[in-house]
Simulated scan of single mutants.
Amino acid sequence: MKNLLIITLLMFGMNQINAQNVISIEADGNLESPNPLVCVDLSAVTNGNNPADILNGMKKCIEIKQYEKAAKLFAIAGVYGKYDTFRVKDKSAHQALLVLQMNIFENISDSEKNSLMEYLEKELKAGSSKLNETCQAIQKVGVPKYYPKYMIQHGIQAFVEKDGNGLIEKFDSLASWKLALKEYLHCGE
């Protein structure tokens, strides 16, 4: 009888847990990809593509097993995301790149993850000629020219502060670009 009572209470509790609704509130433009890419060479990326656009292309590359292209797209998306953390005022928004990356990785198989990791290690190894080539190709694409709405709208300030554009005033674009290349990819080391 005691076991029956415990099982009944557990079943009732499980039904209550299952009956609860999860509500997700997002600001318009959160993690937005206005110009999603397909699987392209790094040279086809423009400085108008934000990290969400680029990571969409990376996902397409993974789907067709073009891991070398995927690794290079991962690299430029990371540099652009790092650059955006320097220019977006709201620190709570800075995890936007990580969330975008997690969204990609949660939908790929372990085999695909392992293959991609092999290429990332090979293409982005510190001090390697492959990394140097990737750094030069990213520098040719150039400093981001898009407005980082995907990141700004990801932070808490998108809900509480409606004034301003979300960017740091008197931002040093060139110095931040060099720092993003160095900190994210170790370019020039």
Rank of each mutant, 00 (worst) to 15 (best):
K113A: 12
D84Q: 05
E63S: 15
N132V: 01
N15W: 12
N132G: 04
L5S: 13
M102H: 11
V38N: 14
F12W: 12
L73C: 02
K60H: 10
S176E: 00
N18E: 13
Y80D: 03
E68H: 10
A126M: 12
S33G: 09
V79S: 05
E106N: 15
I7G: 03
F105T: 07
K89N: 12
D41I: 04
L185V: 00
I64E: 14
Q136M: 11
L31K: 02
L120K: 10
I64S: 13
L131W: 05
S129K: 13
N15D: 09
I54V: 12
K178Q: 13
N35R: 11
N103E: 14
I104F: 08
M1G: 15
Q139L: 07
K170I: 04
A137F: 08
V40C: 05
K162G: 05
V160S: 14
S24T: 15
K60E: 14
L120T: 00
E63R: 09
G164W: 10
M117T: 13
G29Y: 09
A175R: 08
Q157Y: 09
D41M: 10
E133C: 00
Q16M: 15
L124Q: 02
H154P: 06
M14Y: 14
G155K: 04
A71D: 06
A126Y: 11
K60V: 09
Y184N: 08
N15T: 14
L124I: 04
K122G: 06
S115G: 06
F86W: 04
C187R: 05
K89W: 00
H154W: 11
G81W: 00
V22Q: 14
H186C: 08
K113F: 10
Y80E: 03
K89H: 09
P36A: 08
Y119E: 13
G166R: 03
K60L: 08
V88E: 04
K72C: 04
K60F: 01
A137W: 04
V143I: 15
S173C: 06
K60I: 02
A27P: 01
G164R: 09
L55Q: 07
G48R: 14
T46M: 07
K140H: 08
H94D: 05
E133W: 04
I138G: 07
G142F: 01
F74S: 05
P144S: 03
N107Q: 14
V99S: 01
A137N: 12
E32A: 12
F74N: 08
N49C: 04
A52L: 06
A93D: 06
S109P: 03
I108A: 02
S173W: 00
M151Y: 06
L31C: 05
D28P: 02
E106H: 12
L181V: 01
N165S: 10
V38H: 10
F159G: 03
T134P: 02
K170L: 03
K113I: 10
G57Q: 00
G166K: 04
G164S: 06
D163C: 07
A52N: 07
S43R: 13
V160F: 13
M11I: 15
I6V: 15
E169L: 01
